[in-house]
Design a protein around this nucleic acid. Structure first.
Lengths: 238, 238
DNA sequence: GAGGGTGCGTGATGACAATCACACGGATGA
DNA sequence: TCATCCGTGTGATTGTCATCACGCACCCTC
């Protein structure tokens, strides 16, 4: 038996985008109700930290609106951004399941709303509802694939231009246009982009100039126009 | 109810090392019996591929004896080794759970034995035994942490020497001696080490020379003596 | 013992990106 | 209106590592 639309946990979080693969969609009525009892909702300002790398796992965050960046840093202060999360994403799941410290810091990049599921009740809930445990496993394996993609990017792509092209392509596939180009609202600073592809701010600036010159992209204000996907793909596999 | 020693799936695989955190240890009697029905055992020679990156997931491999290396390659032929697996490890779990192609190639580095659990029966089994699904989730999150450690290594450690030191330390912690040093049997070629830390064979050769000169390590035949852990740790965080 | 394959050491060279440095423009706020 | 901060562009310099190249040692097998 499936919960009819309107009983889902996500409906208390009105703007939450519903995804096919979403962890908490299409649960049974009982499971959905139980989840609703467990959860608490809060609004976070820009710059708020949902959790910080190294902290003991308090619980799972279900991001409803807003964007968050997940990052990890070395002692010397070098930081890499490993994922940009949007509404619908589940944050902190790995840490909670394995009862290890959060492996990343989750910081809100713009104000947003999130549901919080405390660790203990969440784990108890999973024990009660085996069906959901399998869903969690699936979500974890998706997380794993994302991490693996990251490994491939960092380990196999040598030059910054290759990684930059890869990043642009990942943005471009999200917003395909009929003519092969695509538009993205650029909300990241060069510094943040550098932290994603593992290089320096200056190099990112130079990459933008270079790619503009090569007609690969165009900037109008904060709107990024990706012009030539196939050329980017050539850079990636070069 | 727990399976008494002797009913465990692993017992058909005599030399299989039993680990506390192992996926299939301490299952209920029923679950253990069911697993035993599902599994089939085979022996693999050195160089055998359990599965190859990009293949549709056929099932899960439970490595009993021998070692395997997990690797991924780019189209241009650059390869990185992401994990060295030993007896007790579960291979291919992520691909099977998420029904995506294997994300790595698993190649036997020395002859060994493995249990194979075909995808369909394994997933069916998980649906029947929710307890095990949660264990699988835990295993997946462990895999995830390993992957994340890899990301940190590749993304945060800039110089090859730092990554090399990190690798040596990871070996050294497995075989601690009373005086702070440790001995490891070096079974990898320089080429393979290069593929682990993401550099070239030549650089690895030079790193060995350099570290020998600095009294950080010593080589007697194929026995690697790691002499100065603290110095290595300084290089890592430098 | 000759020959081929594989793994290892090491020199020379060049490219490329990190680093440092500074200038500019647009916000924001006193 | 001016000061300040932040994000950005871009030059000059330097160190580091990948690359190419070659020689050597070892272990097979014929």
């Amino acid at each position: 038996m499936r919960a009819p639309y309107g009983l889902n946990i996500l409906d208390n979080c009105l703007t939450c985008p519903v995804r096919e693969e979403h962890l908490f969609c299409n649960l049974s009525v009982h499971a959905g109700q139980r989840l609703n009892e467990i959860k608490s909702t809060a609004v976070y300002p820009k710059g708020a930290m949902l959790f910080i790398e190294g902290q003991q796992p308090r619980g799972v965050f279900l991001l409803c609106t807003g964007k968050a960046k997940l990052s990890t840093s070395s002692r010397e202060g070098k930081t890499i951004i490993t994922k940009l999360s949007e509404g619908g994403d589940v944050l902190g799941l790995n840490a909670v399941i394995s009862n290890r410290p959060y492996e990343v810091t989750a910081e809100m990049m713009e104000p947003g709303q999130a549901n919080f599921l405390p660790r203990d009740s969440f784990l108890q809930f999973l024990k009660e509802y085996g069906e959901v445990a399998l869903r969690v496993a699936e979500q974890l394996s998706r997380n794993y694939y994302t991490a693996y993609e990251e490994i491939r990017t960092l380990g196999l792509a040598t030059s910054p231009s290759e990684k930059f092209a890869k990043l642009l392509l990942s943005w471009s596939t999200k917003t395909p246009q009929n003519d092969g180009s695509s538009q993205v609202k650029l909300t990241l600073t060069h510094e943040e982009i550098a932290e994603i592809i593992g290089t320096t701010r200056e190099t990112v600036s130079r990459l933008f100039s270079e790619f503009k010159k090569k007609q690969l992209l165009q900037l109008k204000g904060s709107t990024l126009l990706i012009r030539n996907r196939t050329a980017l793909e050539k850079i990636v596999q070069s």
